[in-house]
Design a protein around this nucleic acid. Structure first.
Lengths: 228, 228
DNA sequence: ACTCGAACGAGAGCACCGCTCTCGTCGAGA
DNA sequence: TCTCGACGAGAGCGGTGCTCTCGTTCGAGT
């Protein structure tokens, strides 16, 4: 059971993180100032260091929270009773919607890493949640016979254990070629969202919604989902 | 003809930009310090402002130079005499190689935009070079009958004029569905490179070279290139 | 119940940053 | 030759991350 001191410490820690998240949403990660956060919560800047050893640690907290937030949004959007194609497009839309609602947080998660900053191991589980949802859709589709597989096999040394475990595990309809296509679809999804968010498609795409719908359908075809 | 004064001014401008590029390669964009650049070229920091009105203008110069550099690399890698599939994979590899050789520059170009920074119009032509090469490959393939098109048509309001002009123009084998797939392949290419560079694929992909080769082949299939 | 040490908040200070202003110099065109 | 603009240097302003020191306060062990 936590003592009173630990409780108020935890409260203050989340209060600082919340203020930091508000500032992140306003000015972005690179302009996030620990001193301004301290001002917002009414502390001396030096006092914040009792709770976060450095600005990078504060950012790490925001990164983990961000991965958890987009992971939760994606999980909530995945209706496991729906057919794979619909689940796939729902998950894609959830990613895009979350990114558009939280552009600075998205940039912090999937944009250029802050220079000199290396993600601690703590971020890995939270960061995996989106990929795990995709893997679950893939696995369910394979079990339901809704996945067009090559029926090939493993290509040793190509993929890591994490990818194999998440993507289909040992199901015969999911070989390494399918896994590569799934990773490609995942990368393409985030590439598309990033391009839209970072303005790389300005002048080329007029109707972002329609374009994105076509892209998700194309990616579903690539992964191998097929209608019942 | 430029006066001596203009000449030495231009020289000093590029010398500052070169020093900034060196520092960019070392510490990244967010940590790029105008004062440090000034120290490297042996000036007072205030003197640099005679050549670049602000740090953002210096970054803009680096961005334009970066787009030109990756554009030149891609153009050099495109052998117009080769079959479309080979040209496509060569261009993809050129993008990846340039990105791995200049990670901080790549992050500056295709990562999160520096907060508060909006790309001036000057950057657009340089930024378009890579896309133009892709469009040229697509158009050549269509003219040579090496492109599997839907034979559909335009979808008004979906794509911008820039995309239509660069991607296939009016060739019947290139309709808007093909253009969407080309844009998707373009986004997927940069999504893949970004994920590799920013560490999002750590643990999932062991052999980056083989994975990338498979990805480019898959994307070529997606775009519709077919062997002779 | 008391004590002692750890946790805490505040303040001053260091080195650095982007940027502005002023001032002396120097050189090219009128 | 004179003049005015371009130039470089320096000081300075407000901001940053981070450290150190100093009282205070609170809680756990005796």
């Amino acid at each position: 059971m936590p003592t009173a001191r630990e409780r108020v410490r935890a409260e203050l820690t989340t209060e600082i993180a919340d203020a930091a998240r508000r500032q992140l949403a306003e000015v972005g990660a690179a302009a996030l100032s620990l001193r301004a956060v301290a001002r917002e919560v009414g502390m001396a800047s030096s006092a914040v260091y009792r709770y976060f050893p450095s600005r990078d640690d504060l950012l790490t907290r925001l990164i983990i929270d961000g991965y958890d937030a987009i992971g939760a949004a994606v999980e909530a959007a995945d209706d496991t009773a729906a057919p794979p194609e619909e689940r796939w497009s729902a998950v894609c839309s959830a990613v895009r919607d979350w990114a558009r609602a939280h552009p600075h947080e998205y940039a912090l998660l999937y944009g250029s890493p802050v220079p000199g900053y290396v993600a601690p191991r703590d971020t890995v589980p939270a960061a995996s949640r989106v990929g795990i949802v995709l893997g679950r859709i893939l696995g369910d589709a394979a079990r339901a016979g809704r996945l067009t597989g090559d029926g090939g096999g493993r290509e040793p040394g190509l993929l890591g254990d994490a990818a194999v475990e998440v993507l289909g595990q040992g199901h015969p309809a999911v070989d390494d070629a399918v896994r590569v296509r799934a990773l490609l679809a995942w990368s393409a999804l985030f590439g598309t969202v990033s391009f839209e968010l970072f303005g790389q498609l300005v002048g080329s795409v007029e109707d972002g919604d329609r374009y994105f719908a076509l892209v998700t359908a194309e990616l579903a075809r690539l992964v191998g989902f097929r209608p019942a």
